Computed example of a mutant assay.
Amino acid sequence: MLFSIEPKHSLRDIFNRKEEVSAFQKSLQSERLIVLDGLRRIGKTSLLKAVLEEFDGYHVFIDCRAYFRNNLIDVEAFDRALIKEIEKTLKLGKLKKILKSISGLSFGGFEISIEGKGQKTNLAEALKSIDETLKGKRFVLAFDEAQNLRFYRKGGKDLLNLFAYIYDNLKNFVIVLTGSEIGLLHDFLGIDDPDAPLFGRYLSEIRLQRFSKDKSLEFLRKGFEELAIDVSEKSLERVVDELDGIVGYLSIYGYIYYKEDPVNALEKTKELAKKLVEKELSALINRSTNYGYVLKAVSLHINRFNQIRTYIENNFGTISDPTLSKILNTLVKQSFLEQKYVDGVKRYLFPDPVMEYVCKEMRMK
């Protein structure tokens, strides 16, 4: 169903992403390191899961958000999940013989027992055995919202070293990472950093963009047609005007209209979206109120560097140029803001209309 609010698992439910699906499928067969990125709620997880569901190979999926607690990755829980997912995959097809040869599998400081009669081994050696057995089939290690892995121990370097080992030595493995905080994900991977484990490796990047207004309207029409519901064009245009081309919001609207309340579906969607955004903003502003000051300014269309600094100093206190520059760069890297040149002048804008609305309503002290 197009209007399902959980991630999609079938390509028939993926709307208007033929080009991205095709690029991703081709990359899975030819590339070693793939990044699938885009704004929050743009459909990255759905596309990833739907393509993997029909993928002719093996895959492991880890949602990195599930192990992010108190601004750190719960290393033991993450390691356990990764090993368990690999063990589960080893029960499939010709990989079963590898499972029988292993009595224990370890990664980092964690080890699990396996019912095989062979020796205990570490994850890298197990992956090497898998690679030698695959003979042309590919094995995908997929990490959703992978920018969180920078909080795995000391900057995630242990994982980056594992990724570099896989890239360099295991020709049948593919590492896939999704990310909503695009700049932070690229910083974490360090492809252009000579001191980073993955420096110099080729990265295949697929970015999901917002739907255009026409495509957003088409998505809503098709979704309601699937449900045999007639909704006026005027109502659909109002929805798109207020929610933009972010497929996650459009899906929530369609789901609420169908399941709960057609009369108040748009308002309820905005309230639910507002709660999602408020949770994300709360975690950000708890780190520094400067983030809130900047977002408040931009929500009021005070969106040039000097204008933002003046607004903050007039309302909240002094802020230095280096501090403001750092805050703005971080907000762009985390995809809370985007920067565009308008008439030759750099301006900061919200990519998400709900986030802009929430920030405009924020009360900052």
Rank of each mutant, 00 (worst) to 15 (best):
L184W: 07
L295G: 05
Q25M: 13
L272S: 13
R304T: 13
D321A: 12
L134H: 11
Q119R: 15
S288Y: 00
D192H: 12
F3E: 07
G317P: 04
K117N: 13
H301C: 05
A283N: 13
I191D: 11
L99E: 14
R65C: 03
R309I: 09
Y253D: 02
V298E: 09
E31R: 11
R41Y: 05
T269S: 01
L48F: 03
K137C: 03
V51C: 08
F219V: 03
K340N: 12
S27M: 11
D144A: 04
K26M: 14
F199Q: 04
L99G: 08
K268Y: 06
E85Y: 10
F151Q: 09
N314R: 06
G179V: 00
K135Q: 14
Q209F: 13
G292N: 00
E145C: 08
S27A: 15
F78N: 04
V342S: 14
L92P: 00
F199A: 11
F61W: 13
D56L: 07
K128Q: 12
K171G: 09
D131L: 01
L82W: 09
I252T: 14
K97M: 09
M364H: 01
M364D: 02
L127F: 10
L28W: 07
I319H: 04
S325Y: 08
L162I: 06
T323H: 11
M1K: 10
I319L: 01
Y311A: 04
K365W: 13
K326D: 15
G245I: 05
R40G: 10
G136K: 08
N161V: 06
D230A: 13
C64Q: 00
I62P: 09
F173R: 15
H9Y: 13
Y257H: 09
D195Y: 11
R238S: 10
G254E: 05
R221E: 11
N70F: 10
M355Y: 05
G136H: 06
K213P: 01
P351K: 04
Y249G: 04
G245M: 02
E20I: 00
V294H: 04
S288W: 01
K88F: 12
K346Q: 12
Y67S: 07
S27Q: 07
F305C: 02
E205R: 15
I312Q: 04
D63H: 11
L149E: 02
V176Y: 07
F163V: 03
L82A: 06
K18I: 00
N303H: 03
A265W: 08
R40T: 06
L134Q: 11
A77P: 05
D187C: 00
V247K: 00
E111V: 06
N172I: 03
G57R: 08
D214N: 08
Y58A: 06
V60S: 10
L217C: 08
V35G: 13
Y341V: 12
L90F: 09
S106E: 14
I73N: 04
E356S: 14
D74Q: 04
L276V: 11
G116K: 02
L217H: 05
N70R: 12
G179N: 06
V345G: 06
G104V: 04
F219R: 04
